[in-house]
Design a protein around this nucleic acid. Structure first.
Lengths: 341, 341
DNA sequence: AAGTGAATTGAAACCGGTTCCATTATGAAG
DNA sequence: CTTCATAATGGAACCGGTTTCAATTCACTT
């Protein structure tokens, strides 16, 4: 099936190609009569314009790339959903770049703003280095960071420090003092995830604010995943003075803790309080107390910010949007068993 | 920053644009000396070719669209992961079209093969109608269906009937006869999901093969989601003769059943056996007996099939790949409590 | 020395749109 | 009856690459 081009349509309608183009773009500079004739020709030939050609001549690609380590965490998918919903309405294509290794991360951040002519770039959860940011700025591709921060770029973040502080404060308010933290290895953060650092900071801050001394043995670090969290929780239970409450870096890790508790016949929340972070969908299923962060919204807002950025091609002041977190109290937290006389 | 074009490079290197193009495409028809000079000019100008222009002149868009109702089921994301991994290595861009309403489904299937010049199309879990398939065939855009079937297009599917049969057979082998099925509303299937029909069929087939009469009250239909499954399970428990085993359409629904059992103080598996379908990640966490289907692989195979299709632009016989399922026995199934004398 | 062929090269033509500019038709104003 | 603005239109130029084709160079035959 030979491709029908705008010239075929023009010939068939007996008009010039410019006129056809005007009809396609709803220009007012076409008489109704001519417009009809062109429309008929278009239908008769089953013509549809080539987006690639249109992109070339317009100098815009009508495509936005989203780069993220999508499949490693459930929460990124929810963010992607927010992005997709906003972009779908905008007419821009969403090109997905998944990043699972640091090598690919670097390759993407290097090559994306170069080879591809993108109209915009959304970087999710990956904190670019200064030199990468410079490259992005020079390349003139509007970029927005979601769940990552850099001074020079517009960002959408969540106040992880405050969220974590709230979580721990909730435990303190219930009367807990022996509060452990289960998270990822802070020294092994190749993707430079900021929340890893911030939530730990919130934990420390809350303890300090309540004059509860930090006990290193209550700080567990390990690889990400509920299996590993299970293991870490068990090592906490084995301590001489085990914690009465555990704050987990994420809901996923909290599930590992819950499982470990069940395994060790510790009843939650009477013998052990557990609190997570994220409020992913199944958290409700488990009745997990957690800190909700607006995942969907962070993506949606990021996409909106990017679209604004693209439209107002002028260099406006970079915005840093910080979304709030919210404590969601369910059934895995309660006052500690022993009264604290 | 004015865009650097191939002509700028040519001028700077003192050669023709054709030569620059040849260097870019690793053509052997360039002398080493010239090649070096061009390379230097490219670096000096920080030039990178416009992919859009390249696409236009080559007549290929180097883009593959993936269309699916991604965010309604966990399992689609896993399939997407398989697709992404294969495509990432291929050099094709992955353009994501999410479909959450039937209106958007129709709009996508109509417009995608038209306006956009795609090199390929992957349709996930959406069964196109005959007229849509005709349109696709006429449009010359290679298309592969994953988790959906149509005679005229290459497909990757799972034998849902057999999988369901295996699941129910497993329950029968354990000695169950009062086996209920919890699934979606069969009469309300706007997206035309084939597995909904097939798994129910497998359930019926297995019962029939074992000469166990089908009891309509054991067939629960409702909206998708564990909450609804919870409700349906409770209505089953309230029957005069409640089932001793429940086969759930998916793991997600099975979780709802497990929760309902816990809620009603029914112990699993001694008083109630539960089996799911999919083997999503958390199924292992719950020790759920289920039927594993190769989600990741189905996406990967689909993408591979599509790439083959694109390369061998000739019309080869359409392939229909059927992937096997596998029974994964964990801890939610056991022989029924009452002995069946 | 003229002829052959391979290697290398420059530039025109092309991909399929958009946009700008020149041209014509039309109607109102002077 | 000009004069001029305005609406409508055709088509060239352009976007930035690839590809084709003709031209040039140079070594090697005969």
């Amino acid at each position: 099936m030979a491709t029908v081009t705008i010239r075929d349509v023009a010939k068939r309608a007996g008009v010039g190609i410019g006129t056809v183009s005007r009809v396609l773009n709803d220009s007012p500079l076409v008489s109704d009569e001519t417009r009809q004739r062109v429309q008929q020709a278009i239908e008769a030939l089953d013509y549809s314009p080539s987006s690639v050609a249109r992109r070339l001549s317009r100098g815009r690609s009508m495509a936005i790339a989203v780069i993220a380590p999508f499949f490693v965490r459930r929460s990124y998918i929810e963010r992607l959903r927010g992005i997709e919903n906003v972009l779908a309405a905008s007419g821009y294509d969403l090109i997905l770049y998944n990043v699972e290794t640091i090598a690919r991360r670097d390759a993407c951040l290097q090559s994306l703003p170069r080879g591809e002519r993108l109209d915009g770039l959304l970087v999710l959860s990956l904190a670019p280095t200064d030199s990468e940011v410079n490259r992005l700025l020079r390349s003139d591709v509007p970029t927005v960071l979601v769940d990552a921060f850099h001074e020079a770029l517009p960002t959408i973040t969540v106040d992880d420090v405050a969220g974590a502080r709230t979580a721990v404060q909730h435990l303190i308010d219930l009367g807990h003092e022996r509060i452990a933290y289960i998270g990822e290895n802070l020294d092994d953060n190749p993707f430079n995830f900021q929340p890893m650092i911030d939530r730990y900071r919130g934990y420390r801050d809350a303890l300090a604010a309540a004059d509860i001394p930090f006990r290193p043995q209550y700080h567990c670090q390990g690889k990400y995943g509920w299996r590993e969290a299970h293991r870490m929780a068990q090592s906490l239970f084995a301590l001489d003075e085990p914690p009465t409450a555990i704050f987990a870096y994420s809901d996923t890790l909290a599930f590992g803790v819950l499982e470990a508790a069940q395994h060790s016949a510790l009843s939650v929340p009477s013998q052990l309080s557990v609190i997570g972070f994220d409020d992913v969908e199944i958290a409700q299923y488990f009745q997990l107390t957690t800190v909700r962060q607006p995942l969907y919204e962070s993506g949606a807002r990021g996409a909106e910010l990017l679209l604004e950025q693209i439209d107002s091609d002028a260099g406006r002041p970079v915005q840093h949007v910080v979304l709030p977190t919210e404590l969601v109290v369910r059934r895995t937290t309660a006052p500690p068993a022993e009264s604290l006389l």
